[in-house]
Each structure stands twice: as structure tokens, then as C-alpha cells.
Design a protein around this nucleic acid. Structure first.
Length: 653
DNA sequence: CAGTGAGCGAGCTTCCGCTTGACTT
């Protein structure tokens, strides 16, 4: 009996379908060893020797795998072909005490690919493992050294890290950009013209002068132009027609799936991943944590057949579309996210899936099928209109965009501006119906939301498919960032304070390019051009020196604001302090008087049934879960998971 | 089922990246 270990149980199940009874296949459930949680676990004095321990969660699994390995004639490690996958394989060798093992990799899960892989085993690539160790150790050094500095200088329980701190930085800086934004006024003038039907044209040129966005700055200037145009005669000057094509978007990867599920359905990153996991486990889609745009040949062939059958030959491009990942940091261990059986219409699954699962599957299916369809064809028309009187002349422009062939849009609709123009001829006279001047102001960039922040992180190469959703959760449980009622991400006082400290004193670490530079070094390790220890040493020594300097230089941040309130318990003055959850009211008589109160007025959700004097208020556990408790806490300990607003609604009915 | 702050000094918090399950919501 031969024993194959992979990292995911679903992958194990799929592979076992292709192999006979000679093979036993089990999964490790991800990493089995890691640095210890409660200590640094790196001997910085001794060449950064890492101290690995079996993950507490993986203890049982490791024991089971170990006993299975003993019974087997051969152990084959078939984890993903990337940095983390190679490291998982290496850690398995250590954790299971394997003296002999084979390493195989395959790029797609098909009978042929697996059989080929089994014929060509190799050794574990220790250079790739070392690149992973360097990544792991660097992240640990940054996280476990910077976080305690924040505990000392700001408040306990805070955290900092290569990924989360940059995510917070982006949110903070975007908010500042919005605060600092000065709207700029500009004006446009459009003409409603008639030739059988009405159409609209925009002023683009006065005499020989082409207008820019800010050419008309004031209402007075706009009104003058409208007045000057008073007795002008209108005529078509020129008509240009050209065909434009729009190509489909590539199939989904984790980040684009999260973004699109957000904009189509309002699903959060976490929710999307949960639903995708369910679809993956049911065997409906390929793996959902991926940064690769690759598609198996089989899946493309099936898609083409399906497209030909359902829509006809014109909906197929001349040659199959191949998508290449732009991202330099992509690890390409998997395929893009696609339906495993593209021939199955989503409609066939409608009753069988939960509504949200169906929505996501339908989206993934459409995006994949569309990615293999022909482009959409538009006819774009540009019309120059000349307005002329004795004194001057003005050029207006109207544009039309008419869909001639829908192509992939038939399956995957996109927001497109389609507008048609009446049938027009050059030199034709037109009748002016109305001149419409309009005042506009430039607008600030939007706040980030989960989807756009993930997009930004991905573009900078920060974080991985498996961590986008958890990172978003972390910066919110730390309360560096909060989601407002429109799900926009805004920084909190504590988020701004932590970010300011990090940007001022550790600019290299929270530099947006830090991860990209790290990745370059990791590549050199993986290629064997560098050893991992010197790379870590080059980072550690200046970092350590800075850390020591800063722990002396930075004064503890104590921000206190006065208020005119008096303490209800002792009559002393009430002040505003900054704690790990942000600002709060505290008695200035501390530590004699321990009175505190939240800064924001809490929403009253009814009175407490236990003590009758308290109000029910929304609260959160340390882990971030919402519950409802009595405002008299700790005197009254009433608490519930039930949302009292829901009960109230029921009562109202 | 839960909060903050000062300083004393117990004991504790914290990273990123792989993967799912069962604290029951």
C-alpha cells in the first residue's frame, strides 16, 4: 500500500477517484508545524534557528498520519507546487519522522496528470522551503517585536504586522485624502438638438480653442457662453463611425471573486469564501484560494463545446483565450476559479443549492464561460456639430454607442453606456431645442470598502488569497478600522494613532513596497542565489537597532481631553482618555474612583428585564461577536445573543 | 457572553499563511 498525503480533504477525495486500491490518500489539513504561539520561537543569537512545534490543532492528525505512514510501503507527498506547499511537505517529513519519502506535484487534478506525476517523483526542494522559512521568520520578527512596542507605548492588546499594518495605512491615508479634499468647480454646456429625434451634444471647442475640464470655471462664464450662442445656426460638421470591440474579463481568482461578489450581491469577503468553500466541497467549482488564471485544456474544450451548442459558432473566438497573470508574486499552484463541469448550466442546479450558493455558482459559471467567448462589437459614432453666428463659432460633440453583436455579454452582462443617435448626415441643418449649462464639482476618491481594499492589497502584492478575508477581519476586531452603515471602511482614533506611530518610526516596515522587496529576496533564496540566514540578518540588524532606539525615544502616548462633565460617582471632573478600544470617559480621580463610560451615546434597545433600571445595549465580545447586555453591567449581569430589535419587530406584528 | 486608565510587577497579549470544523449563532 502506498500512502499519498495532500493538504486538503477534498483534494484527497478527488485524487482517490483516479487511483486504484494500491493507494491510500489522506490530508494534512494545511500546515502541521509552526513557530510556537506564546513565544518568539526564533534564536536570533544563533543564526535565527527557528523552533518549530506541532500545531495544537494538528496533533491528532499528525499521530494518525504517522501510524498510517508506518503501515505503508511508500509515502508520497503531493502538496501544492508553491512555497507554502513545499514547506508543508518538508514539515510533514519532520513531523512524521519519515526517513524515505517521495515528492510529486501536478498542475491539474486529472487521471493523466496524477499518473504522470507518480512516474516522475523528485526530492523536496529545500531552497523553496528556505524561502518559506525566511518569509515565516520575517513575519514573526516584525509582528512579535512591533506589537509589544505598541502595548508599551499605546495600549495593550494591539498588534502590528507586515500585512495588516499596511492595510490600516491605506484606510487611514484614504480617509485623510478625503478630509483634505478641496472640491473644484467646473461647468459644462450641452445642447439638445433636433433632427427627427432629439439628441444631446457637449460643447468642446470655442472658435479654435479646445476646452478642457476646467476651461469654464464660473456660472457667469457659462451664462455668457449661453448668451453668445443666442442666434447661432446649427449644422452637422462631421460624422465618424468606427467599430469598437470589448473583450471579456478573465476567469476569477480569489481577489476578483471577492470583489465581484461584493459588487453584484453585497457579499462580504468572509461570506464569499464560506460559500465558495461549500461549492468546492460539493465538487462544483475548482479550488477557491488561488491567484492563477490558468485553465485546464479539458475545461476550455468543454466550454467551447457548450458555447457552440448553446449560442452558435459566432460566439467562439478564433482561438481559445489564454489568460496570463500579471502579478509577479502569484504562486500559480492552482487553476483559476471555474466550474468543474462547465457543461452543466446553473439552471440545472437551481433547486439543489441554497439561494446564496446558487448566486455565487451562477456568477462563477458565467464569468468562466464568458471568458472563453468572442468579444462584443459596438458601433461608435462621433458627431461634430457646428454652431455659428456673425461673431464666432462653437463646436459641440455627440457620441453614440450601439451594440452590434453581444458576444460574451450574452452571458456576462456589464454596465455599458449604450445610447443611440438619430440618423444624421453631414452638413445637415439642426434645430436647437435647449441649451443646458451645468455646474459640477470634482469629487474626492471614495472610501475603501472590503472589496476595494482587497483589490489594492492584491495590486501591491500584499497578502495572499488565503489571507485577504482574515486580514480584513483582524483590522476590524482590533478596531483600527470600522465599517460604517454604508459598509465603507473608516479609520478609528486608535487606528490613526497606531498608524502615525508606525509611519513615523518604522517607515520601512509599513512602506507599501516592503512586501514586494521581500518577495524579490525570497525569489533569490528559492533560486539558490542566496542563503536565507543572511537575508534575515540584513533585515534584522537595522530593525533591531531601530527597535531599541525607539523603545527609549518614543514617549508613552497619553492623550487626555478635558470635559465639563462631573463624575456621577464622586463628583470629580470627567476626562476623555484613549484606551485600546478608542476614546472613553473616565473619572479624573482614578485610581480612587474607577468610573468609566463609553464616549458615544449607546442606542437604547429597551429596558433590562432583570434589573428594570438598566437599558439593553449592543456590545461585542473580545472576539468581536455581537451580543446584547444591560447598561448597568457589572452590577447587573443580564446578557443575551438574541437581537432585541428582532423581538421588538415580532411584538409589533 | 463585557472595556479601556497610573505604577507596582504577576501573567498575558501579538505575526502570516496553509487548512477545516463544531464553541452552537
Amino acid at each position: 500500500m502506498k500512502f499519498i498525503i495532500v493538504e486538503s480533504p477534498t483534494k484527497a477525495k478527488t485524487i482517490s477517484k483516479f487511483l486504484g486500491n494500491d493507494y491510500k490518500i489522506e490530508s494534512s489539513y494545511g500546515h502541521v508545524r509552526d513557530l510556537p504561539e506564546r513565544q518568539l520561537g526564533i534564536d536570533v543569537e544563533n543564526n535565527f534557528e527557528p523552533k518549530y512545534t506541532i500545531l495544537p490543532k494538528a496533533k491528532k492528525r499528525v499521530a494518525e498520519l504517522k501510524s498510517e505512514a508506518k503501515k505503508s510501503s511508500e509515502v508520497i507527498l503531493a502538496t501544492d507546487e508553491d512555497r507554502e506547499g513545499e514547506a508543508i511537505a518538508w514539515h510533514l517529513v519532520q513531523a512524521l519522522g519519515l526517513d524515505k519519502s517521495k515528492r510529486i506535484v501536478f498542475h491539474e487534478i486529472t487521471a493523466n496528470a496524477i499518473k504522470e506525476a507518480l512516474k516522475n517523483p523528485r526530492e523536496i526542494d529545500i531552497k523553496l522551503v528556505n524561502a518559506q522559512q525566511a518569509r515565516r521568520i520575517l513575519d514573526r520578527l516584525v509582528g512579535y517585536k512591533l506589537s509589544p512596542l505598541l502595548w508599551k507605548k499605546i495600549a495593550k492588546g494591539l498588534s502590528a504586522g507586515r500585512v495588516q499594518s499596511v492595510a490600516v495605512r491605506l484606510v487611514v491615508e484614504r480617509a485623510k485624502e478625503i478630509d483634505d479634499f478641496k472640491p473644484e468647480e467646473y461647468h459644462t454646456i450641452s445642447a439638445i438638438l433636433l433632427k427627427n429625434e432629439t439628441f444631446e451634444a457637449q460643447l468642446t471647442q470655442i472658435g479654435k480653442e479646445k476646452l478642457g475640464k476646467f476651461s469654464i470655471k464660473t456660472t457667469e462664464a457659462a451664462e455668457k457662453i449661453v448668451a453668445d450662442l443666442g442666434n447661432a445656426k446649427w449644422q452637422i460638421l462631421k460624422i465618424e463611425k468606427k467599430e469598437s470591440r470589448r473583450q471579456p474579463l478573465p476567469p476569477f481568482i480569489t481577489s476578483t471573486l471577492q470583489q465581484t461578489a461584493w459588487s453584484w450581491f453585497g457579499f462580504g469577503a468572509k461570506q464569499t469564501m464560506l460559500l465558495a468553500q461549500q461549492l468546492y466541497e460539493t465538487g462544483l467549482i475548482t479550488y477557491m484560494r488561488t491567484d492563477s488564471l490558468n485553465l485546464s485544456k479539458d475545461s476550455v474544450a468543454t466550454a467551447h463545446e457548450k458555447i457552440k451548442k448553446d449560442f452558435g459558432e459566432n460566439y467562439l473566438p478564433a482561438t481559445p483565450r489564454i489568460y496570463k497573470t500579471k502579478s509577479k508574486t502569484a504562486q500559480e499552484a492552482h487553476e483559476a476559479i471555474r466550474p468543474t463541469a462547465p457543461e452543466k448550466d446553473p439552471e440545472m442546479l437551481k433547486g439543489k443549492l441554497a439561494p446564496q450558493q446558487f448566486k455565487l455558482y451562477d456568477l462563477i459559471w458565467k464569468r468562466f464561460i464568458a471568458s472563453q467567448m468572442s468579444g462584443a462589437v459596438f458601433e461608435a459614432t462621433g458627431v461634430d456639430v457646428l454652431a455659428k453666428n456673425a461673431n464666432d463659432n462653437w463646436t459641440f460633440r455627440a457620441t453614440g454607442n450601439v451594440l452590434k453583436f453581444d458576444g460574451f455579454l450574452r452571458v456576462y452582462p456589464q454596465k455599458l453606456s449604450e445610447n443611440s443617435l438619430p440618423l444624421l448626415k453631414e452638413n445637415e441643418d439642426l434645430e436647437l431645442k435647449e441649451l443646458k449649462p451645468a455646474q459640477h464639482f470634482t469629487e474626492p476618491p471614495p472610501y475603501y470598502n472590503e472589496a476595494s481594499l482587497i483589490k489594492a492589497l492584491e495590486e501591491y502584492g500584499i497578502g495572499r488569497p488565503s489571507t485577504y478575508a482574515p486580514t480584513l477581519a483582524t483590522i476590524q476586531t482590533r478596531r483600527y478600522v470600522i465599517k460604517d452603515e454604508d459598509k465603507r471602511l473608516k479609520p478609528t482614533d486608535i487606528g490613526i494613532l497606531v498608524n502615525t506611530l508606525l509611519v513615523k518610526h518604522f517607515p520601512d516596515i509599513v512602506d507599501i513596497k516592503f512586501t514586494a522587496k521581500m518577495e524579490d529576496s525570497l525569489d533569490e533564496i528559492a533560486e539558490g542565489k542566496k542563503e536565507w540566514q543572511p537575508v534575515i540578518k540584513d533585515f534584522w540588524e537595522p530593525f533591531k537597532k531601530n527597535l531599541d532606539d525607539k523603545s527609549v525615544e518614543i514617549k508613552k502616548e497619553i492623550s487626555i481631553e478635558k470635559t465639563s462633565l462631573k463624575c456621577p460617582e464622586c463628583g470629580e471632573e470627567v476626562i476623555i482618555r484613549m484606551g485600546r478600544f478608542g476614546k472613553f470617559y473616565a473619572c479624573s480621580g482614578f485610581p480612587k474612583c474607577k468610573y468609566t463610560a463609553p464616549l458615544q451615546e449607546q442606542e437604547d434597545l429597551g429596558s433590562c428585564h432583570k434589573c428594570n433600571t438598566g437599558k439593553i445595549v449592543k456590545r461585542r465580545t473580545k472576539k468581536g461577536r455581537t451580543f446584547w447586555g444591560c447598561s448597568n453591567w457589572p452590577k447587573c449581569d443580564y446578557a443575551t445573543w438574541e437581537n432585541p430589535e428582532k423581538n421588538k419587530l415580532k411584538e409589533d406584528e
